[in-house]
Nucleic acid binder design. Structure first.
Lengths: 214, 214
DNA sequence: ATTATACTCATTTTCGAAAATCATTGATAT
DNA sequence: ATATCAATGATTTTCGAAAATGAGTATAAT
């Protein structure tokens, strides 16, 4: 079935989508049966996910999906603020026209997907994907592989929490306005305004989520 | 010999100390013989190190020690600036007396080890260790597990470059003065001065290293 | 001479039987 | 009754034989 090299992709997907429950143990025999492979590829893929922070390992007890908590959600936000703030600062300072073009393009797609987010079945996840791509585009010119990689991983981890709450129909407009403003600052190369805005933005997301049950 | 769970520690050590050459392939049979274990624990440990950014993996070609380059050294510095800057800002804002005490203590040990760094055989690595501990102590009150973990990993990665150049006997005084100043700002809770100082500090280290041959 | 194809060989990668581990249960002694 | 220790069982973890892979080499075809 699934090639062994892509096993971590499949499992990452399961963890991010909540199919594999946060905090639950990952029993070897079960995974072996589920994915129709031997022990080695499974352990290897899980070890990679440990490094990514999605899975925890306890010697002789096995692997488990990393749990969710308010403290962890806050920590993700704090770290995202540090990483994305610095990356955005550099990106705005270094970005050329190609960067501007990619931001404009991503913003366009973001607007479009937001407009139909509640119409179709997977409209919401389309919007979410466009949102994440917009953020990635904004820091795309920062020139630091590590900062971009960290942003990507933190976005993934954040995704697990976003999926837990129902996005209110009404909030959409404010959400869009937030990003219009952010992109405007970025393209105007207003460094301080953009960074201040994105830092505030991170915390708003936490506030919205911290009322949720989990 | 070495318990299988600690295999990654042993290999990490080898990579950081340069025993395992940067860019070189890690042949399975060789590692199997060297550590007297089977394939599985080796692959697992290496997979963990992939997540930490010390090892690269290419499907069906195997694992290799991550190479060194000027671009990579600069990227480490950029990322360290982002992570340690933000962490220090939070640490200064949130730190209590216990934090102050740990900083004072770490600074004391740093001074002591610096004084005898060139006297004994392993004096230099003692000094290096104390230096890293001082930086860890400074951000110790930031309250973010992720920022502290990232700082630790980046410090490790930076270590591989530090080992490449010979620390000049003369530079020691300036190095100590830098840290005296930094600690002073931190304990005085002068947030902006401390953060500005540490950001400059990161770049100084890069400059010193970028003249080295590699 | 150059491209295409089959064959080697060194190496990675997978597999499941077997060993190791830990929590639990049951037996025994105080 | 409670503590101590041995047996049990469920599960993780290791191991090396065997399969899969890809790079290199030889052979054949145009």
């Amino acid at each position: 079935m699934a090639k062994a090299t892509d096993l971590d992709d499949v499992m990452r997907d399961g963890i991010l989508r909540g199919t594999m429950e946060p905090g639950s143990w990952l029993r070897m025999e079960e995974l072996k049966a589920r994915f129709a492979v031997g022990f080695s590829p499974i352990r290897e893929a899980l070890s990679r996910l440990v490094g990514e922070g999605l899975v925890e390992f306890e010697a002789n007890r096995g692997f488990r999906v990393k749990g969710l908590s308010r403290a962890d959600l806050l920590d993700i936000a704090v770290t995202r603020t540090a990483v994305e703030g610095a990356a955005l600062r550099r990106s705005i300072a270094l970005g050329d026209d190609r960067w501007e073009a990619s931001v404009v393009g991503a913003m366009h797609r973001y607007r479009r997907t937001a407009a139909v987010a509640f119409d179709t079945d997977n409209g919401l996840s389309q919007w979410e994907a466009a949102h994440d791509e917009l953020h990635a585009a904004l820091i795309g010119a920062c020139g630091s592989p590590r900062l971009m990689m960290l942003q990507h991983r933190l976005q993934e981890q954040h995704l697990r929490y976003r999926r837990l709450i129902v996005v209110p129909h009404v909030g959409a407009e404010a959400h869009i306005a937030e990003h219009e403003q952010l992109v405007e600052y970025a393209l105007a190369r207003d460094l301080d305004a953009a960074v201040a805005h994105i830092e505030r933005h991170m915390m708003i997301t936490v506030d919205a989520l911290s009322n949720a049950e989990f």
